[in-house]
Structure formats: structure tokens, C-alpha cells
Amino acid sequence: MSGGALAALDIGGTKIAAALVDRSGTVLRRGRVPTPAGGGDAVLAAAAELLDGLGLAGSDVRGLGVGAPGVIDPDTGRVVSATDVLPGWAGTPVRETLTALTGLPVTVVNDVRAMAYGEARAGAGAGHHRVLHVSVGTGVGGALTTGGDLDHGAHGTAGELAHLLVPERGPVPCGCGRRDHLEAAASGPAIAATGDAPRAGALLGRALAGLLAVLDPDAVVIGGGVAQIGAPYLDAVAAAFRDEALPPLRATPIVPARLGTDAPLVGAALLAGTLLAGSPPV
């Protein structure tokens, strides 16, 4: 299916972002609102209202792509499991509800996988064959792409790194409740609690050194809100990685996401467009 714009949603623990995106991945319009309390129904109602505010009604929008927290059933678009980063989210029928609210065909994928797809297709991952994408914001997430397509793994968690064990107790709980996981020590809330972005970056770099020994990607792309801190954070990630990584891995590029915080929106939209065109799911 050619022509027409695509709508996109990026649902997170603190904010919902929406955009209208063209078929090349260019964001035409965008908006955002705080994520409401009240569980899945309240979140999706706010998301649909946000889309309406972008002029969805009466526009030539062909489909909606959604990046959502948690493990998503690719066949039903339902949230199979989720942490308390977004309370009451587990079990939410995202595709079914948003189809009813918007009248559009809806594609739902994990939010970090949406980011990864955007960066692999139109951002910093383009041109690399196998890429580990890392998102650091309210939580810590990861995803793999190979040849520009998502690699979900056997259980939909390929590339996930929030629950990697770290040698320091985090100042906030991981979404699963533990404090010895990477998310507890290196997420945005952890940095806000300590005021020490370089320390958090170093912990992520050390974790990547071990993870890359297993995955051996061509590049690592780091996105999410925390990556917007820039050099103080990203330089700490890279330095700790080089210190700890196996010698053959030390030259692996670690680069910031080119699309910034638009990456999940672009990825969700492009994925929706791919599926509307009749390509097999990635």
C-alpha cells in the first residue's frame, strides 16, 4: 500500500508521545502528554486523544504503529507481561482497544524494539548488519536488529538488558523490584537520585562489555532520554566498555541514536507501513 501518512505512538512510564510520519520516516507533526494513572484503559484513551489533537480525523493516515512497554504478543497486540514502570499495564489489549478508538489498523511492538527498528532503518544503525540498540530513560531496555529487521528471539526478549546483574546496589528499584539489576543503577530515575551520570554510564559500559562477548554485534546504538545528556554520559559508557571488553571487541562502535527521542515513533510508523504493504512481520 503506497501513499498516505502513518500515525505513531510511543507509550512510556512518564509520557506518551505521538506523531504523524511520512513513508520515508520524516516526522510531520508531533505532540506529547504525561502518562496518566489508572491503568491501560486510561493510558490508551489519553493516547487516542493525543492523536486526535494532531489532526488524525479527516487526514490521509493509513495505519498506526505503537511502541509500548512490556512483552507484546505479536499476534494479538496484547501486553503479555510488564513491570511496575507502568502500573496496571500487563494484560492490556493495545491493538484491539486502539483499533476501536481510532478506526485504523494497528501494529504494536515493544517500545525499545520500535526505537531499534527506527534506528536500523533510518538512523544510526543503518549500514550496520547486526546492531544492539540500548534505550535508557525511565527504564533500561535493549533490542537486536539484523539486516535492518528485528530479532525477537524465542520469547520476545532478545537484546534485553534491564535485568543484568551489576556489582552495585541501585538507588531505585528495577521495574521488577530488585536493586542489583542494571536498571536500578543506570536508569534515568537512578541518575536523578544520585546526580552522577558518569557513574551510571560506566556501569552500563561494563555491562555492555560482557554482553557483547555473547552477542558480538557490529555496533551499539544508545538512545532514550538519558542519552540526551551527551558527552558526560556517553563518554563514560565508551571508556568503561573499552576498559572491560575483550580485545577483539574494543573497536566496536558505540554511537548515539541519530533520531533522538523520535526513534520509537519513526520505528513504530515504519513497521506499521511495512506490514500494511504486505511484507512478512519482522
Rank of each mutant, 00 (worst) to 15 (best):
118 G>E: 13
118 G>V: 07
118 G>L: 08
118 G>S: 12
119 E>A: 11
119 E>D: 10
119 E>M: 09
120 A>R: 09
120 A>C: 10
121 R>G: 08
121 R>C: 04
122 A>L: 00
122 A>C: 07
123 G>F: 06
124 A>D: 06
125 G>R: 01
125 G>P: 10
125 G>F: 07
125 G>K: 07
126 A>E: 03
126 A>T: 05
127 G>V: 09
127 G>N: 03
127 G>H: 05
127 G>C: 06
128 H>E: 08
128 H>W: 14
128 H>R: 14
129 H>Y: 10
129 H>F: 11
130 R>M: 03
131 V>E: 11
131 V>F: 06
131 V>K: 10
131 V>G: 07
131 V>W: 13
132 L>Y: 02
132 L>Q: 08
132 L>V: 04
132 L>S: 00
133 H>V: 07
133 H>S: 09
133 H>W: 06
134 V>D: 02
134 V>F: 04
134 V>R: 01
134 V>T: 00
134 V>M: 04
134 V>N: 05
135 S>L: 06
135 S>D: 02
136 V>G: 06
136 V>E: 04
138 T>A: 08
138 T>M: 06
138 T>K: 10
138 T>L: 06
138 T>Q: 11
140 V>W: 08
140 V>E: 11
141 G>F: 05
141 G>T: 06
141 G>I: 07
141 G>S: 09
141 G>E: 00
142 G>Q: 12
142 G>D: 06
142 G>T: 11
143 A>I: 12
144 L>W: 02
144 L>S: 07
145 T>H: 13
145 T>V: 11
146 T>A: 15
147 G>F: 12
147 G>A: 02
147 G>Y: 02
147 G>M: 02
148 G>F: 13
148 G>V: 14
149 D>L: 15
150 L>A: 00
150 L>F: 05
150 L>I: 15
150 L>S: 12
151 D>I: 04
151 D>L: 14
151 D>S: 15
152 H>P: 09
152 H>C: 09
152 H>I: 12
153 G>F: 06
154 A>Y: 11
154 A>E: 08
155 H>C: 08
156 G>A: 02
156 G>W: 14
156 G>P: 15
157 T>F: 15
157 T>P: 05
158 A>L: 10
158 A>I: 11
158 A>K: 12
161 L>W: 10
161 L>P: 15
162 A>I: 06
162 A>N: 10
163 H>P: 12
163 H>G: 08
163 H>D: 09
163 H>L: 12
164 L>S: 05
164 L>G: 07
165 L>S: 14
167 P>R: 03
167 P>K: 04
167 P>F: 01
167 P>A: 13
168 E>Y: 13
169 R>N: 04
170 G>D: 07
170 G>M: 03
170 G>Y: 13
171 P>V: 02
172 V>I: 12
173 P>V: 11
173 P>S: 13
173 P>F: 03
174 C>S: 13
174 C>K: 01
176 C>S: 00
176 C>A: 01
177 G>F: 03
177 G>D: 02
178 R>P: 01
178 R>C: 04
179 R>F: 01
